[in-house]
Amino acid sequence: MHSKTESLIGGFPDAVLNSQTVFRALMDCLAHPGSTGSVLPAIVPPAPLSIAAGAIMLTLCDHDTPVWLSPAMAQSDVSAWLSFHCGAPLTREKSDARFAFLDKGAALPPFGLFAAGTQDYPDRSTTLVIELDALDGGRALTLSGPGIRDVTQIAPLGLPDSFLHQWTGNRALFPRGIDVVLVAGRQIIGLPRTTKISGLEA
């Protein structure tokens, strides 16, 4: 059905080593929120998926992880690419998704629509991978919490204004809640649900 070669090429050249490298980078970013990590493997994901988001998809998504794609992604070759390389089922229900991928400029759905896990299994939640214009040059945000000595700052460019408000609501659910990974090009920043984020006073 999807025999278009474009949707099949561009996976990890070396699936085992590449996915280990990306996993390590992502783990470090989530352990040290606010730090910027890079994805190195030479992959060619179909537009509008960036290299970083594509690498995260190849590394973390599989047959057992339903994936939600933003409307622009769902209509692109991304869905066939996801199916071919990861075998992950697509879901339209955000609350069923273990991972959600949003292209640059996609409307940010209310976090409450995604799976927040349960009190017994808070891990059964959605991880959002949000593509931005850049991970610097934007409005400064102050981060604190586990994995951060005192405070740190990030300035992602293109984060919707509603993000901070939604994040506060997400924090209130702890230990339930979603986790977020911001990506731009090859770069990633991890924002686990434990991180406090506030806008920097002007």
Binding site: G11, A15, F84
Partner: peptide, 8 residues
Amino acid sequence: YLRLRGPE
């Protein structure tokens, strides 16, 4: 030929 996926 080029590999698209696998062999795995």
